[in-house]
Design a protein around this nucleic acid. Structure first.
Lengths: 198, 198
DNA sequence: GTCTATATCCCGATAGAC
DNA sequence: GTCTATCGGGATATAGAC
């Protein structure tokens, strides 16, 4: 079980990021001190600064890495989907991808305001990019006569807000499986923009 | 323009609450210091403690007062509504009531975690009560054959999350009037639980 | 009713020992 | 690679002058 110095270092870095994510998600960035993060890892606070230049960079890294991951994975799926199935594909991807990443979802939507200038702009543009890919689906669907949408931007925000709401509050308490959740809420999102006869 | 001591005191209390709400909403409870609240009011920090026993009580008061107000106003409307119109009534009420209270919405959903023990339980139970009134509407609608709902609790959360998402991001930028927003999103919520033929 | 001054503590970050 | 010790500052909250 020999461990090199390098692998120890890499491991410590991962553990720091994991604990920071957990605490930021649970108590909020501003309420969590570097001492508290260190304490939970049985480290001294000075040690943290070998792995991150400051607290802000820790948050920025978590947010940027997550958004990069979201965009990359959605990009891999968002090809060669038949037009009328694109919205369902998006909503199912969104739920499936994020349901095991509740802590990332929490900080992505609650802690953006704690990023400073450039950091905020960077992460915000990544999020806009993701939202834009949904807006394109909605616009296309409307133009092709599939959907009844009055305002694409707000409709996109509404759908993502709905899906995130479910993600945040969903607990695996046995009532519903992940498959159930995925199906139910992608269906709800789909129906919310459907054309209906009155 | 004579002002009594009493009215000055009442005014100061209101100003403190208003500024605290504004700052908590914008930067988050944990990131806002008592000094900052005082500074924005051209007061010294000691003065704040004449009007609130501590910072926590300031947050609790804002959250409790808001939730009491929500429940009271919805209670006044939620009478004598024809069963099949109850969901639309709820969603329209929710949007109309909250759209001028964005800061309250922000703290209600972001700062709950900063309430301590009893305070959290109290405000959380008020929120549950409000959510429960939506769940009752959904359950009734499903039992009467109006709605296609697989899980009432998560559906309720999804609808409220969707509506709140719109509230948070909606800006009066001229594209849409408040009436438009109210109509569009109560319609989306309604359609999301509608029965459709496949 | 508000201010000044202060007690007590915790914060982010750094220097240097081991 | 991690620790101890510490700097400088800002936090909540209180005491007492005016």
């Amino acid at each position: 079980m020999a461990r090199t110095k390098g692998s120890d270092s890499k491991l410590t870095e991962l553990r720091i990021r994991k604990v920071a994510l957990n605490l930021f998600s649970q108590y909020g960035y501003a309420a969590v001190s570097m001492r508290r993060i260190a304490s939970k890892l049985d480290l001294q606070v000075g040690t943290l600064y070998l792995y991150t230049p400051n607290k802000q960079a820790l948050l920025f890294d978590l947010l940027k890495t997550h958004m990069d991951s979201v965009l990359k994975n959605w990009g891999l799926e968002n090809v060669e989907i038949e037009p009328d199935k694109r919205l369902k594909a998006f909503t199912k991807f969104h739920i499936r991808f994020h349901i095991g990443r509740i802590e990332h979802v929490n900080i992505s939507y609650n802690e953006l305001k704690n990023l400073t200038g450039e950091n905020f702009d960077h992460v915000n543009s990544l999020r806009s990019e993701y939202e834009k890919s949904l807006e394109e689906i909605l616009t296309f669907g409307r133009d092709q006569g599939y959907f009844d949408i009055q305002d694409v931007k707000l409709t996109g925000l509404a759908i993502i807000a709905m899906l995130n709401g479910v993600l945040k509050w969903y607990r695996t308490d046995g009532r519903l499986s992940l498959d159930d959740v995925e199906e139910i809420y992608s269906e709800m999102a789909y129906k919310s923009v459907m054309i209906v006869d009155n």
